[in-house]
């Protein structure tokens, strides 16, 4: 009787179970980041936890959809919550806080650094993918997109229809960028002259990962955070616009 009740319980409300799980992950990683005295790494920690769970799910089931292959999270659970529909919906909503007058304030140098930043990261990421033997244009573009940010990677990969494995690589590349930015910025700040609002805006536009830029600048010179964040907020939008379209066309013409 108890097993029947449990099975019936576990069979229902997949989405709610998954929301509770994600909430728990966010709660725990937030606590850990506060304990470490680095509250800004909470998001990165939570995403890494998600990847670790996907790894466990993949190992346990032998499937290719991570945790979504475990029945209690499948279907309308992690599959729906972490699917491209809700992902795109919430990403688009972040554009609400973007003020055009901030971009004007950043001026031409801000706009140039944004364009250079997205294009540079994309070229480096795609170049590394090609150097390591990836030849499919959609896969190379997706990995290059991951080097832009961990959002641009999956958005591009979904548009171009690559496998979940390639999308996971692109997320990992974006995470490496985000974490490295947080860690390295304080050490490299003097070397690259990161001590005034202009260079902070250039830095935000070139690196673009909002959490990395905000975290890195906070550890370097907290008064510069708004300047870096100002340009960084435009970065993902620009990336999701030009990488899957223009970027893919260029990569395809190189590889075919």
């Amino acid at each position: 009787m108890l097993t029947d009740a449990f099975n019936s319980f576990a069979g229902a409300d997949h989405l709610i179970i998954s929301i509770a799980l994600v909430a728990l992950i966010m709660f725990i990683t937030k606590k850990i980041s506060i304990m470490l005295g680095e509250e800004r790494i909470a998001s990165a920690l939570a995403i890494i936890t998600g990847l670790v769970l996907a790894f466990i799910g993949g190992k346990v089931t032998g499937g290719s959809s991570g945790l979504a292959d475990i029945s209690i999270f499948s279907g309308a659970g992690i599959g729906l919550l972490g699917g491209s529909m809700l992902r795109d919906y919430t990403i688009i909503s972040t554009a609400y806080g973007v003020k055009l007058k901030n971009l004007k304030k950043a001026g031409p140098v801000g706009v140039i650094s944004l364009l250079v930043g997205v294009i540079f990261s994309f070229i480096v990421g795609s170049g590394v993918a090609m150097a390591l033997g990836y030849t499919d244009p959609a896969e190379v573009t997706t990995i290059g997109a991951g080097a832009v940010t961990f959002i641009v990677g999956p958005v591009t990969g979904t548009a171009l229809g690559v496998s979940s494995e390639i999308i996971a690589i692109s997320v990992a590349a974006g995470l490496v960028k985000s974490i490295m930015t947080m860690v390295i910025t304080p050490f490299i700040a003097d070397l690259v002259g990161l001590d005034n609002p202009t260079s902070a805006m250039v830095y935000g536009g070139l690196i673009g990962t909002t959490s990395g830029v905000a975290g890195g600048l906070a550890a370097t010179a907290p008064e510069l955070v708004p300047y870096g964040a100002m340009t960084a907020t435009f970065y993902t939008g620009l990336g999701t616009l030009i990488v899957p379209s223009l970027g893919f066309i260029i990569i395809r013409s190189i590889l075919l």
């Binding site: 998600g50 996907a54 790894f55 919550l81 390591l132 979940s164 692109s170």
Partner: peptide, 23 residues
């Protein structure tokens, strides 16, 4: 961010580990 966490949890990470170097 929570949705991105959920997205991360459903990716083929086992497959991607082989491509860890490229990431």
């Amino acid at each position: 961010i929570p949705i991105i966490v959920a997205m991360a949890a459903r990716l083929n990470v086992v497959g991607a580990i082989n491509g860890g170097l490229v990431a």
